[in-house]
Design a protein around this nucleic acid. Sequence first.
DNA 1: TTGACTCATCTGGTATGCCAGATATTATTC
DNA 2: GAATAATATCTGGCATACCAGATGAGTCAA
Lengths: 230, 230
Amino acid sequence: MAIPRLDVKPIDTQSSFRTQAYNALKQAITSVNIYSQPHEIRLDERQLSQDLGVSRTPIREAMTLLEQEGFVKTLPRRGIFVVRKSKREIIQMIEVWAALESLAARLITLRASDAEIAALRRLFDEFQGGHSPEGHLDEYSDANIKFHQAIIKMSGNQCIADMTENLFIHVRAIRQMTIGQNDRAQRSIVDHLKIIEALERRDTELAEKLARQHTLDLAAHVEKHCNFLS
Amino acid sequence: MAIPRLDVKPIDTQSSFRTQAYNALKQAITSVNIYSQPHEIRLDERQLSQDLGVSRTPIREAMTLLEQEGFVKTLPRRGIFVVRKSKREIIQMIEVWAALESLAARLITLRASDAEIAALRRLFDEFQGGHSPEGHLDEYSDANIKFHQAIIKMSGNQCIADMTENLFIHVRAIRQMTIGQNDRAQRSIVDHLKIIEALERRDTELAEKLARQHTLDLAAHVEKHCNFLS
DNA sequence: TTGACTCATCTGGTATGCCAGATATTATTC
DNA sequence: GAATAATATCTGGCATACCAGATGAGTCAA
């Protein structure tokens, strides 16, 4: 006779409180659009430790990570503040993004399989089939990000993915505010299609160049129109 | 009559124990060539805190940073280990470096002053005037790194500098082992000269391409000859 | 001798308490 | 009443104690 056993699920012994606090805080910080509200946001270690139900220690170590990633800035005995990137910093991050995505495009033409590239086109067609970007900017913004993430992932270079992950987060808020300007959504679709075509033809130089220029255009747009940034 | 005063220097209230521990540990970790010795290096928080004369807390926070930067890996209740990058990871880092330095070259042609570019050529000529690379590989290796750092800095994009800083450290050990192979030093000098010439002529496309290819060549070299990497 | 078991020990994870600088509040002085 | 000084409070930096998992030496049975 089988011994009755409780249906206990193994607790996640892999993720420490520190990791859980890190994820929770990063989620919380990146979900508020800090550029749309004027006052700076201050965090309190003790308050957060109470809210999350853990002591200050894992909170502090999570903050150490978030500070290195540029999301918060700690001023000793003053407080911990959510960082608002300047226009200059945002543009520099977009430029780096352009360089890395350009490299990703190069690597795809050299190493990706035809099936992978075909999957990228399907991802593109699926969204295109039916709606035009006008009036669906939220959806389009999601599809847009998915497209870029797919390219990064297809490159097979994990280092690119790691280094662009936070760049995406920092730039995301800005993208959402620019996607509706100057017919950018429509232009963006055209650019993406050209990039896909270059990848399909394994045209390394062209794919590299188009991917770079597409993102550098965003940098130029931010330079011109995002004067709400400091 | 002046009151006698002790010549006390203001203590560095800016750098916390955490920061000092971080610097000391990073220095210590990166100064040992982990690829030349077979056994893995394990660190002990308590031992380090005793050596550095501080408690475990700042040590732990420094370790948190070093782990995020990829220099150490913490295994709970096992220990903290100095990370040995695999060949695949090294190559991916060099590829990212190539993309970023290529961007730096582009930005220089568009934004740097003639004086800055002239300074770069002087840096190059100074080292060239007199010695050939053979027999001075250590010096050459230093000059080589200085050249690349100068390009990064001249780009004016601080984000590139931040993101390449650790890449340089990770790749440095490998560079020192490859610089003497295949006449790489001599070839490298030729490449650097061509890059400088392209920058002087403000040839954006060419400078970008040469800078990228120069570093991608290193990646290819590592792929072929660095089989001592895991 | 060998294998499994026990337990002392080691190690990173976490909670807690104290410290000093920074700020806000109150008291004091003119 | 305004400017200044004294004080209470808040906040991040640091030290320390305890916990539990992992390890390895030692023990005991087959």
